[in-house]
Design a protein around this nucleic acid. Structure first.
Length: 815
DNA sequence: AAAATTCGGGG
DNA sequence: GTGTACGAATTTT
């Protein structure tokens, strides 16, 4: 008896069964249970375009290649009319029996003379399926078929029919947040192989739990016998809770890989996939990501940093700062450095358990807050949720474009290969335009945000790789690019602008609805936000070296038009009595001078009446005060470097990157205090005197050693360093003294007065006192550089900072 | 100026 | 998995 089921797909994979590719869709049914739907009716394919007049279909069909004892062959071909970069092409759709045959066959034909180009041989099979079947993850799909008997944690339905039934999305995905604490002696680097997981916390809806393997008392704590049991328990919790989304804060790069390493140690099979497949850790050269079949593992840290990153005020993406900004929650303050000792002596472990659980809780809350964004992004782009955190906006744009292809009968350009990428990266085009900030301290700053600028330029000027310099409109409506003639077709709308406009229009419709609705609707807000972000990324995408639809000509035309429009609004603002002090690609920072906020709002309205089409200026924000610093970067313009005081008293700081750990505390503190004094109290004198005081304290050796200690992590084996920095010199000494140092070790040092080169002057913090540190180093290389630019703006030169009344000669030390 | 190195997130 | 990947800032040479 065939059954019909409606469900929201959460994850997708495929397996080869009986020499056939079977798609597995895992999801949550309308009724709330989990299900897996299998479809074996989809065949892998790619496209080939032949050179003019070449007859290649027959040749293709004859291909047979032996690979590891299996034969890969073309099963059939179809002649198809396609569009490629807005031009019609005759293409051949080449079918093969298994996804893995695609690269094999492609490899055979890639150098054939009679072939013009090969397309879409690297579109992942599961993604191809979702696109061609018009299925959107997390959105209601109906399948009909029979329940079959396959090893699985959830019922499996073999589908005879599967289709999208509506755009209703999964309302309350079941979220489980996980967080581990590990044994990590103070000062030692994290070592997954060596150090055990000591506790693990879970937080879900009506569910919280900490598991540990030492006996102590704490709320919601369950004690097990050993670390191995803890890992078994982790599996059990996951199996019982049955989340749609598993999350953690950097869980993709830390918690899950850590659990994986520990599980291997005990030979525990982490078969947590809904099909009993094991946790899949992808250790790339630069990043690690983790996936679980059937469960969307979304690392909320990665998602927030990549997707919301630019919208947040914080420069630090640690859980504490991010949670504070987004949900107003902080971490519990405990000294994590003491956990290892606490574990050894079994003291205060309850505090750490509490801390552990709280981290899981705020991670859960963050994910709850992100879910609307994730759902909307999934719906726009059409990819499953677990990749959302791993992708940058350029990739999301690309997949959005690819998802739209079928509606326009387009085929995608190839991904650029290595040498092509290198070549593209060399070409530094004029890039995003930035008004250099006029350095200074300003009051009453209003930010006008011009975010839809680039998207609307793309749309209104029909900018697309396929409409560039068309034969039908030669030199008509030239883009304002200085040294080149670019024009875009005025007769036929390009593929890219068309789908781009669709994003903008959808967003406008949603904004209309939001306006009409009385209550705040987080899902609609998120949709609007994600549509905007995606539309805004098109320009970056077109100029991104690794993009399929890359076009430096288009990118240059877009920025050229952008300059044109932003100049216009900027001039208008100045004429209307505002003063533009800084401008970035899509925003203008102005001071109110003697205007009011209301007048600023009115100005925006006026400008908008004047702006063509979909273009729109927003009143973005107000800051009571702000400090702008000049930061020239070569000939390519200025860089963001400013500090703003928000109305709630918090600071928004960009470009002052002393937050990194390899700055001494004295430098970090000085900068922070100075910015606060200047922006909140507006007292130059006080700031100046503060720095003079710090300098004096340094000279008098009154600054404690902790504040002049610098932390640098050893990245590789000592022997493989070409240049010996201070931390390498210290590491060598440590090794000679029989201490174990290697890649990952955190090296602490103080720059002392004894020695010539910096590396000779570096000493262990423990072998020096305040008398030994080199005050001139800390003044010249730490404190002054951290605040120099700020004081420049206020009219104090570096020399003034350093001069000491009655000691004129002193400045010869400061070079 | 070029080349080498580090940070970030997690404990 | 039909793969696939930093980028920016800072210091040393």
């Amino acid at each position: 008896m065939p059954e019909t089921v409606q469900f929201y797909p959460v994850d997708i994979t495929y397996k080869i069964i009986n020499k056939k590719a079977n798609i597995f869709l895992f999801g949550r049914t309308k009724e709330g249970s989990q299900i897996c739907v299998v479809d074996d009716s989809f065949e892998p394919y790619f496209y080939v375009t032949p050179k003019k007049g070449a007859e290649i279909a027959k040749k293709l069909e004859k291909i047979e290649v032996e690979v590891k004892g299996e034969t890969a062959k073309v099963t059939k071909t179809e002649q198809v009319k396609k569009n490629y970069l807005d031009k019609e092409v005759d293409a051949i759709k080449v079918y093969v029996s298994l996804p893995r045959d695609v690269p094999v066959i492609r490899d055979v034909i890639k150098d054939w003379e009679i072939i013009e180009s090969i397309h879409e041989y690297d579109i992942l099979f599961t993604r191809r399926y979702l696109i061609d079947k018009n299925l959107i993850p997390l959105t209601l799909v109906e399948a009909e078929g029979d329940i079959i008997n396959i090893k699985s944690r959830v019922p499996v339905l073999k589908a005879s029919r599967i289709e999208q039934v509506s755009d209703a999305s999964l309302q309350n995905p079941k979220i489980l947040a996980v967080d581990i604490e590990t044994y990590n002696p103070e000062g030692k680097s994290i070592d997954m192989e060596k150090n055990p997981i000591v506790m693990i916390a879970f937080y879900g809806k009506d569910f919280k739990k900490v598991i540990s393997w030492k006996k102590f008392k704490a709320d919601d704590l369950e004690i097990v016998e050993s670390e191995a049991d803890l890992i078994e328990k982790f599996k059990e919790v996951l199996d019982n809770y049955k989340p749609d989304i598993l999350t953690g804060y950097y869980s993709g790069g830390f918690d899950l890989p850590y659990i994986d390493v520990r599980a291997r140690k005990y030979k525990i099979k982490l078969d947590i996939g809904l099909d009993f497949s094991i946790l899949n850790i992808n250790r790339g050269a630069t990043k690690t990501s983790s996936r679980i079949t059937g469960i969307a593992h979304v690392d909320v840290f990665k998602f927030i940093r990549r997707i919301l990153g630019t919208q947040l005020d914080t420069n630090l993406y640690g859980l504490n700062d991010v949670a504070e900004e987004l949900i107003g929650e902080k971490k519990i303050a405990v000294e994590l450095d003491n956990l290892a000792e606490a574990w050894d002596t079994n003291k205060d472990l309850d505090k750490f358990a509490e801390y552990n659980l709280h981290d899981a809780k705020i991670t859960y809350m963050l994910m709850e807050k992100m879910v609307p964004n994730i759902i909307e992004l999934v719906k726009i782009v059409g990819l499953p949720p677990d990749v959302m955190g791993d992708m940058g906006f350029s990739q999301l744009v690309e997949w959005y474009i690819i998802r739209q292809e079928n509606n326009f009968n387009e085929i995608a350009p190839e991904n650029p290969h290595n040498d092509e990428i290198k070549e593209r990266r060399m070409k530094k085009y004029e890039g995003a335009f930035v008004f250099e900030p006029k350095p200074g301290l300003y009051d009453n700053i209003v930010v006008f945000d011009f975010r839809s600028l680039y998207p609307s330029i793309i749309s209104s000027h029909n900018i697309s790789p396929g409409t560039l310099n068309c034969k039908c409109c030669v030199e008509k409506d030239l883009a304002p690019v200085e040294d080149a003639k670019y024009w875009f077709c005025t007769k036929k709308k390009g593929f890219i602008p068309t789908i781009m406009e669709d994003l903008i229009e959808r967003r406008m419709r949603i904004k209309e609805i939001i306006k009409k609705e009385k209550q705040v609707n987080p899902l609609l807000e998120a949709r609007s936000n994600m549509l905007k972000l995606l539309a805004n990324s098109f320009y970056g995408y077109i100029g991104f070296y690794a993009a399929r639809w890359y076009s430096i000509e288009c990118a240059r035309a877009i920025t050229a038009y952008g300059r044109h429009y932003i100049h216009k609004v900027s001039d208008k603002a100045n004429k209307s009595g505002f003063e533009v002090i800084y401008g970035d690609t899509d925003s203008l920072f102005t001071t109110l001078k003697n205007k009011t906020k209301q007048e600023a709002l009115k100005f925006v309205e006026e400008v908008n009446l004047d702006l063509p089409g979909v273009m729109e200026l927003n009143y973005e924000a107000f800051y009571p005060s702000g400090l702008f610093v000049s930061a020239k970067v070569g000939s390519l313009g200025a860089k963001k470097k400013y500090a703003l005081l928000k109305e709630d008293g918090k600071l928004k700081i960009r470009g002052f990157e002393t937050v990194r750990r390899n700055w001494s505390l004295i430098a970090k503190e000085s900068q922070e205090v100075i910015l606060k004094i200047i922006l909140k109290e507006k007292n130059k004198e006080k700031a100046f005197n503060y720095i003079k005081k710090i300098i004096k304290e340094l000279l008098d050796h009154k600054v404690p050693v902790e504040k002049v200690t610098i932390y640098t992590q050893l990245q590789k084996e000592i022997s493989s360093y070409d240049s010996i920095g201070p931390h390498v010199a210290i590491a060598t000494k440590m090794r000679d003294q029989g201490m174990s140092v290697g890649p990952g070790s955190m090296i602490k040092y103080v720059i002392s007065q004894h020695g010539d080169k910096i590396r000779d002057k570096a000493k262990f913090p423990s072998e020096v006192t305040s008398k030994d540190y080199d005050p001139y180093y800390y003044i010249n290389n730490q404190v002054v550089p951290a605040v120099e630019k700020i004081f420049e703006v206020l009219g104090y030169s570096k020399e003034e900072l350093l001069s000491k009344p009655g000691q004129k000669k002193l400045d010869k030390f400061f070079k």
